[in-house]
């Protein structure tokens, strides 16, 4: 199992790290703990939302809007939703997996994930303030365009 392999690697690296530098390792563990605490409520929310989603939204509805046969319109819809939502990295994959299980198409899911992480409508004002208006707008526009391109190819390759 993948999670088993990763756990093994993590423990192995942790031991190496602890042997070479105790102090740094403690800081690393503190960072891990802090991240876990910050992440916990959102993870729990998403888990319950997935429960609701899979229980109440009928699979055929998801399949019709963003399913295999929804074509480019379905990809566009998922890309737009992905651009608007702001979700931590950790929960994008489980959420996407639950949508797939309900009949969403690979193309739409690839568009959803890619725009989710690369395009940030909610964070755009902040990006414009720190990075400059031109930089922020172009980065988001180009990311959206390339997300559609990535989704198209993934949909064609993976089916």
């Amino acid at each position: 199992m993948f999670s088993f392999a990763i756990s093994f690697i993590a423990i192995f690296l942790l031991i190496i790290s602890a042997v070479s530098d105790r102090k740094k390792t403690m800081i690393a563990l503190k960072i891990a703990g802090k991240t876990a605490l910050n992440l916990m409520p959102f993870l729990l929310i998403i888990i319950i939302v997935i429960g609701f989603l899979l229980t109440f939204v009928p699979g055929h509805l998801i399949a019709r809007v963003i399913g295999k046969n929804s074509g480019f319109a379905g990809v566009l819809v998922s890309a737009l939703i992905g651009s608007i939502l702001l979700i931590p990295h950790f929960v994008t994959a489980p959420l996407a997996a639950s949508l797939l299980r309900q009949g969403a198409g690979i193309m739409a899911i690839a568009a959803f994930i890619t725009t989710l992480v690369m395009v940030g409508t909610v964070t755009l004002p902040m990006e414009m303030k720190t990075m400059g208006r031109k930089f922020a707008i172009w980065r988001n526009l180009l990311s959206f365009g390339f997300a559609l391109f990535i989704a198209l190819i993934m949909g064609l390759v993976l089916k």
Binding site: K24, T25, I31, L43
Partner: peptide, 14 residues
Amino acid sequence: ILPAVLILLGLLDV
């Protein structure tokens, strides 16, 4: 998978 991911994250950061 979460504990392992978090530990790796901390190690990378440090």
